[in-house]
Design a protein around this nucleic acid. Sequence first.
DNA 1: CTTGCCCCTGACGCGCGGGGCAGGGGTTAG
DNA 2: CTAACCCCTGCCCCGCGCGTCAGGGGCAAG
Lengths: 130, 130
Amino acid sequence: MTGRMRIGDAAAAAGTTPRALRFYEERGLLPPPVRTAAGQREYGPDTVTRVRVIRALLALGLTVEDLASRAHRLDLLAADPPRSCASEGDFGPDTFAPVIEQRLAALDAEIARLTRLREALARHTGTVEA
Amino acid sequence: MTGRMRIGDAAAAAGTTPRALRFYEERGLLPPPVRTAAGQREYGPDTVTRVRVIRALLALGLTVEDLASRAHRLDLLAADPPRSCASEGDFGPDTFAPVIEQRLAALDAEIARLTRLREALARHTGTVEA
DNA sequence: CTTGCCCCTGACGCGCGGGGCAGGGGTTAG
DNA sequence: CTAACCCCTGCCCCGCGCGTCAGGGGCAAG
């Protein structure tokens, strides 16, 4: 039943590549997995779920470092449970709120910078092309 | 009278560093300068002006490659002359218009992407922190 | 002549999320 | 047993505009 799989299958199941999984492990986003006697990594379905979470957060603009610093909470997001979160008091997944707000601020700053740049460039367009 | 100067003085006069001048030369933004008998580069005030133009365009978001492809026209922008431009017919500095519009489009696309990202992230903020 | 600043070339570093080798060994169907 | 994959580690590659050495030589003042 979707038991243990090797890195290629796990990566495919999570929509990515073996290289990415080794990279996440190296950066501390994934714990060192069980190995076969021959040294090959073996993953269970929970890891696939975790990798999906990681990729979703990366796609939202969080950095690998952001996730590494909170790696021990990544599994809490997997089940997407509003109930168990509240039950943990100040121990819930709002661990990510600070880093998300930081990212939002960085995005706003970058958007503002690009917007200013765009305006400056548009102004000089007239100067140069006329 | 502000005659020939070595790379350090020319760079300082243009508000940058010797490294940048060698880099612009390497990438084709500056022509190979005159050398002293000992092999040291010598620049005149016209080069300083040209470097200022280069830096202004780079600050507007154009890339080194953009400028390299139009390097032979960089001097035309130096004097900022609306008269001599028109006198050259379709040969004026509107050579830069296409690349500028391309940059504008790229900026718009990037701004839109970041804006979408920001909205997605803001949505998930509620989901995650609540 | 020496001191101290300037210049030369060539090469690596950066930040970020991996991609793409090379050179070796595991594994499984035929 | 062998072919055809798969996996392992370790390393360099990408883009961009330079910064920053490293190891050598030039140039003007005292």
